[in-house]
């Protein structure tokens, strides 16, 4: 893991020299112990020792379809919507009539399989494109068998993205008093290139009273208890990882006739590092 950090430092030196001088104060090399990962190197289906699927429209959980966000897709575990191929996880949103929904896609979670507090969570992702496409790489706090409810459980969105804005991603936290529209959030805009034409690395480094957001190892935001308008719920609960591609919904708006389908999110790996001490 030393090599990885070295290469990152080297790269950032080469590209942004000033960032490199500042980086002496950045705690970016504190998370080096790999505690969990999926490299998606086994062709075929998803490793169910690491992931479980959410299926359907969420109507059983939320009372109405849309997973609480007016999303339009029906999540399946079919290979048309999710598979591992060429060393990549591929989650594909399709426009098709399926069990009453107009779109299909997939969502996987490590709930009950891998949950922890703190660490560096990172994924290398090639994002999809088009109006109304809403992929996300995020963490959700454990609900203690339903005894704690959102937003008290806490939510850390490492990466959210609107398909119609292929140069911008968003990082956020949700908790009691600062959820949904009041979430604490910041966006990152690429100065060159696009999120839908090449892979980028999305990461957080999360420790006691801080969550730092990175794109391609560039720190662009840090959230601390001082930034949230309510209780800091990220120091004692355990969180699990979620990867999904939603279609439509309140964050992104609906697809339109110019949205090309199918649209796939490609994930090279998801890795979780623990703090060095």
């Amino acid at each position: 893991m030393k090599a990885r950090v070295l290469s990152i430092v080297l790269l950032s030196c080469m590209i942004v020299f000033q960032a490199c001088t500042e980086s002496n104060n950045e705690p970016e090399n504190e998370f080096n112990t790999l505690v969990w990962s999926d490299e998606f190197d086994t062709e075929g289906s998803i490793d169910t020792t690491k992931w479980l699927f959410d299926i359907g429209t969420g109507v059983e959980i939320f009372g109405t379809p849309g997973w609480g966000n007016n999303e339009l897709q029906y999540y399946t575990d079919r290979p048309e919507n999710i598979k591992v191929e060429n060393g990549l996880l591929e989650i594909t949103a399709r426009k098709e009539n399926f069990n009453g929904s107009g779109y299909t896609s997939a969502k996987i979670l490590t709930r009950g399989l891998f949950e922890r507090t703190y660490g560096r969570y990172e994924a290398r992702i090639l994002l999809p494109f088009g109006q109304g496409i809403w992929p996300a790489f995020w963490l959700l706090g454990d609900d203690s068998n339903g005894s704690v409810i959102w937003p008290q459980i806490g939510e850390i969105d490492i990466m959210e993205y609107r398909g119609q804005q292929p140069t911008i991603i968003h990082g956020s936290v949700h908790g009691p008093g600062y959820s949904a529209g009041q979430a604490v959030t910041d966006e990152y805009s690429l100065r060159s290139g696009r999120f839908d034409s090449e892979f980028h690395v999305f990461a957080i480094e999360w420790g006691p009273d801080f969550i730092r957001y990175f794109v391609d190892d560039e720190l662009y935001n840090e959230i601390t208890p001082a930034d949230v308008n309510g209780e800091w719920v990220f120091n004692d609960n355990v969180f699990y990882i979620i990867l999904n591609v939603a279609v439509g919904g309140s964050f992104v708006g609906s697809p339109n006739s110019s949205t090309p389908f199918p649209q796939a999110m490609y994930v090279d790996y998801v890795r979780v590092y623990a703090h060095d001490n």
Partner: peptide
């Protein structure tokens, strides 16, 4: 070379 051209259809 802009690097921001994508999604050929």
């Amino acid at each position: 070379k802009l690097g921001t051209i994508a999604q050929p259809r």
